[in-house]
Simulated assay, not measured.
Amino acid sequence: MPLLNVNSITTGYADMEVLTDVSIAVNEGEIVSIIGPNGAGKSTLMKAVFGLLHPWQGSITLGDRDISRYSPFEIVAQRMCYVPQVANVFTTLSVEENLELGGFTLEKREIDAAKERVYELFPVLKERRRQKAGTMSGGQRQMVAMGSALMLNPVLLLLDEPSAGLSPKLVDMIFERIVTINATGVAVLMVEQNAQESLRMAHRGYVLANGENRFEGAAKSLLEDPEVGRLYLGG
Results as ranks from 00 to 15, higher is better:
Met46Asn: 07
Asp15Val: 09
Arg130Thr: 10
Val86His: 12
Ala219His: 09
Met80Phe: 04
Thr10Leu: 07
Glu116Lys: 09
Glu100Met: 01
Gly138Gln: 04
Gly165Thr: 00
Glu120Pro: 00
Ile35Ala: 06
Leu199Asp: 07
Arg128His: 05
Ala25Tyr: 13
Met1Asn: 10
Gly165Gln: 01
Gly217Met: 07
Tyr82Gln: 08
Arg65Leu: 10
Asp15Ser: 15
Gln196Gly: 02
Ile24Leu: 15
Leu150Asn: 13
Gly29Glu: 10
Met173Ser: 05
Gly51Leu: 01
Asp172Met: 01
Ser137Trp: 03
Asn88Trp: 05
Leu222Phe: 14
Asp172Lys: 07
Gly36Trp: 12
Arg230Ala: 15
Leu3Thr: 08
Phe90Ser: 00
Gly139Lys: 01
Asn5Asp: 12
Gly36Leu: 13
Leu189Arg: 13
Asn194Lys: 08
Ser221Asn: 15
Gly234Glu: 15
Phe122Glu: 04
Arg177Lys: 15
Met80Asn: 03
Val207Asp: 11
Ile181Lys: 09
Glu74Trp: 02
Leu62Cys: 02
Gly63Asn: 05
Pro84Glu: 08
Leu166Met: 01
Asn7Ala: 02
Val32Asn: 09
Ile178Met: 11
Phe73Tyr: 08
Leu158Val: 06
Glu216Ile: 00
Leu52Tyr: 07
Ser167Gly: 02
Met151Ser: 09
Met201Thr: 13
Asp15Thr: 13
Ala87Phe: 07
Val191Asp: 10
Gly211Met: 05
Ser59Asn: 04
Met16Leu: 15
Ala40Ile: 08
Arg204Val: 11
Leu152Ala: 11
Pro37Gln: 13
Val32Leu: 12
Glu74Pro: 03
Asp66Lys: 06
Arg109Ala: 12
Leu231Tyr: 14
Arg214Cys: 06
Lys132Ala: 01
Lys126Cys: 00
Glu30Val: 09
Val144Ile: 11
Ser23Asn: 14
Trp56Met: 11
Thr92Val: 05
Ser23Gly: 09
Met16His: 14
Arg79Leu: 06
Arg109Met: 09
Gly103Asn: 01
Asp15Asn: 14
Val18Leu: 11
Ala149Tyr: 14
Ala87Val: 00
Pro154Phe: 08
Arg79Asn: 13
Val95Gln: 07
Leu4Arg: 06
Val144Glu: 05
Leu222Asn: 13
Leu158Arg: 06
Gly63Met: 03
Gly134Val: 03
Thr91Ala: 10
Asn38Glu: 10
Gly39Leu: 10
Thr180His: 15
Gly211Ser: 03
Arg130Gly: 04
Glu116Asn: 09
Leu157His: 05
Gly205Pro: 09
Gln140Asp: 02
Arg128Ile: 01
Leu101Arg: 02
Val179Ala: 14
Glu107Val: 04
Leu170Val: 09
Met80Cys: 11
Leu150Arg: 14
Lys132Asn: 08
Val32Asp: 09
Leu199Glu: 06
Met143Lys: 03
Asn38His: 10
Leu156Ile: 05
Asp15Glu: 15
Glu96Tyr: 02
Val191Phe: 07
Pro168Ser: 01
Asn182Ala: 13
Ala113Gly: 03
Ala149Lys: 14
Ser8Arg: 12
Gly103His: 03
Pro37Lys: 12
Gly102Ser: 02
Gly12Lys: 12
Asn27Ser: 14
Arg129Met: 08
Asn5Gln: 10
Ala209Trp: 04
Gln142Trp: 02
Val49Asp: 03
Glu110Asp: 14
Thr61Met: 01
Gln85Phe: 04
Gln57Arg: 14
Leu125Lys: 03
Arg117Cys: 02
Leu45Thr: 10
Tyr119Leu: 06
Asp66Val: 06
